[in-house]
Design a protein around this nucleic acid. Structure first.
Lengths: 340, 340
DNA sequence: CTGAAAGCGCTAACAA
DNA sequence: TTGTTAGCGCTTTCAG
């Protein structure tokens, strides 16, 4: 662990190359045309001294850090982790850099992370808010200081952009599939969702209710454990078959695991339908019928929003339509028989 | 999106409170004792003006950023995502802040991320290296400029600390379980691992070979898809039962999904054993017998290493023993019958 | 206990 | 094309 004793600055390089610090800066960044030989001399000197630019100094001077901050609720949720990974790969194609922080599923921590990104002078901030209501303050704060984008979950009246998928439309795709391919009398439809503390939970729930008025609804949290509990609850209540519409793949995963552990067959006894279609949850057994979110395009739209050319009159709210992906967890009619 | 026009600086606050910038700094950070009323006056002024500290300025002056950088190979891998989440929660208890970057599974990107963290003057850098060999350069570079810790995967001769689990010991726990609880004649043992491009892959593979000389070994990558392919390969070759030891839960997940999709029962026909025991993979169906990595303690040790009190004569290499967790994917003898 | 002044490392105006 | 100078926002000597 041989730490360097003295930090090499641009002046050191300048001295060695026999030029001014400004010239070194120009040679290294290529911000201005200059004589190739001098540039070369500077680069050599920098190399020899092991010079590294100090981005703190640069950012302080330039009044921009070239950093995009991303605050996710919880990296243990594979959907959020996947969102982070996708955004990271898209941002990679620009000269911006993405730094991720986790809110550890706490509104307070989320707020601290947002603050701290702002204090570090991020140029843009992407937030997947923890809570539809309590995240508002942090987002308003952010909007005052950086280009701010809410991703996946919308908080009302923050002034920030929103990029997400059209959850109602997605749920309507599910409804269409269920109506076309499922014998609803043989398999009553149940929604296993999340308490509407986020717009996604909200919208998916509302659309489900609109599509299946009177159908049973169970609400918990976006994690595997809740899916397991919900399955237990349904089975304990004597349910032996049904179509379980989950608000997220991660919940569907929990449903699947408990249903199967307790000896029920999917899709024969129970159909299971998910939402998100992203990340490792895609590989459940049996593979899920799910609504796939267009994460790739969502990431691209975010980059556009914060891009150098400020998108004039950009819409505040960008909703992209998801697609339905059919899997064996709830196959099309051919296999399960239509009602009429 | 009402962006603030003028940035409020410490001088603005000073002017408003009728004191010097130095006093404002002291009042806001509490770095020196001062008259409570003045402090209060300063805080009020700051509040009224909507002052936010510029951490770039502070870091530049203080020569430390209070940031720990974490570079992970790929956030879509739930083990790495979970490691990031755990470390994040532990670091949360200190005054350091964790920022995460993904290498997108590319050595080049990894190197760029390391460089860029260093240029941003992180105080410490934690890296889960992509590649046992090719990640070396980046890590050496890091070691020269910040306290550097390799996490989970070891690259030789970098001068950096290493924190990880004792993979050989973990695999020996698996071996013990297999010998105690499995009829190896009825269920031949196969290792489904990853090409040894990381020390974890390496060590687990080597220990398996030592414990089961002559047993079949398939090597691919650390992802679900490889597990699926491996299962297909084994089944296509006519295998109808066996004990499949995976080098990671994520591979085990793929094995499970294909085995079950093709009508084989776990654990009756095939036992499946994983490694990691962390994150969402814990909730496979049937639940995995796996080796649980002590991620909590690993995170704590990392924080200790970079803590204010530089751990004198700290070991370069910290290996923590994992534990075996038995699940229905490979239950103990009681259920499956011992050989003798 | 408070203020004045210097300077962290960098780059952008302005001069030459 | 290159150099000089100033200053981004902050904290920390050093005086008082």
């Amino acid at each position: 662990m041989a730490r360097r004793t003295h930090r090499v600055t641009i002046s050191d390089v300048a001295a060695r190359a026999g030029v001014s610090p400004a010239t070194v800066s120009r040679a290294l960044t290529g911000s201005r045309p200059m004589s190739p030989e001098l540039a070369e001399r500077v680069r050599t000197a920098a190399q020899e001294l092991g010079y590294r630019v100090n981005l703190l100094g640069r950012a302080l001077r330039q009044q921009r850090s070239s950093v995009m901050g991303l605050v996710v609720p919880d990296l243990d949720n594979p959907f959020f982790a996947s969102l982070a990974e996708h955004l990271s790969r898209v941002v990679e194609t620009s000269d911006i850099e993405l730094l991720v922080a986790s809110a550890g599923d706490s509104v307070e921590t989320e707020r601290r992370m947002i603050s701290s990104f702002l204090d570090r002078q991020v140029d843009s901030l992407v937030v997947i808010p923890c809570d539809e209501v309590q995240s508002q303050g942090g987002l308003e704060e952010a909007t005052d200081h950086a280009v701010t984008v809410q991703l996946d979950r919308r908080v009302l009246e923050t002034g920030a952009y929103y990029v997400g998928c059209d959850n109602r439309y997605g749920m309507s795709l599910v409804a269409g599939h269920v109506r076309d391919d499922v014998d609803a009398e043989a398999q009553p439809v149940v929604f296993v969702g999340a308490e509407p503390r986020s717009s996604s939970a909200h919208e998916r729930l509302e659309e489900f209710r609109r599509q299946f008025p009177g159908s049973r609804v169970l609400l918990g949290t976006f994690d595997v454990r809740w899916g397991q509990q919900a399955a237990d609850r349904l089975l304990d209540a004597g349910m032996t078959r049904g179509t379980l519409v989950a608000a997220a793949d991660i919940i569907a995963l929990g449903l699947l695991s408990r249903l199967q552990a307790r000896g029920h067959r999917v899709p024969d006894d129970f159909r299971v339908i998910g939402f998100d279609g992203v990340g490792v949850t895609r590989l459940a057994h049996p593979e899920l019928t799910t609504v796939r979110q267009p994460v790739e395009e969502m990431s691209r739209r975010i980059l556009e929003l914060v891009g150098d050319l400020p998108v004039d009159g950009a819409e505040q709210e960008i909703r992209i339509r998801p697609t339905l992906v059919l899997g064996p967890s709830s196959p099309p009619a051919a296999r399960s028989g239509r009602r009429s």
